[in-house]
């Protein structure tokens, strides 16, 4: 595909479905990344408080989501 047709295609791509799908996919990717990083921090002995501070959320929120059930 040439650059011109590629650009033309993108410019015309106003389909909300594509944009919404990208947001949903990004959210899922984010959830997975968060899970990996939180587990890694816990394995290295970080407290819930420390993890929460870095994530910018409350300690309760992060513990509720990732703490043992």
């Amino acid at each position: 595909m040439t650059e011109a047709t590629d650009l033309a295609e993108r410019a015309g791509d106003r389909d909300p479905r594509v944009g919404l799908r990208a947001v949903a996919a990004l959210r899922r990717l984010l959830e997975q990344l968060e899970s990996v990083q939180v587990r890694s921090a816990r394995n290295q002995g970080w407290s819930w408080q420390e993890i929460a501070a870095e994530l910018g959320v409350s300690r309760q929120a992060v513990h509720k989501k990732y703490g043992r059930h």
Binding site: G19, A25, L26, L29, Q32
Partner: peptide, 26 residues
């Protein structure tokens, strides 16, 4: 691909995000 479908991977690529690259680095 972190469990993303090809359609989702393509949608992210449209935003300039390479999901497979992220998975590979992690």
């Amino acid at each position: 691909r972190a469990g993303l479908s090809r359609a989702e991977t393509d949608a992210l690529a449209g935003l300039g995000i390479d999901a497979t690259e992220i998975v590979a680095r992690v």
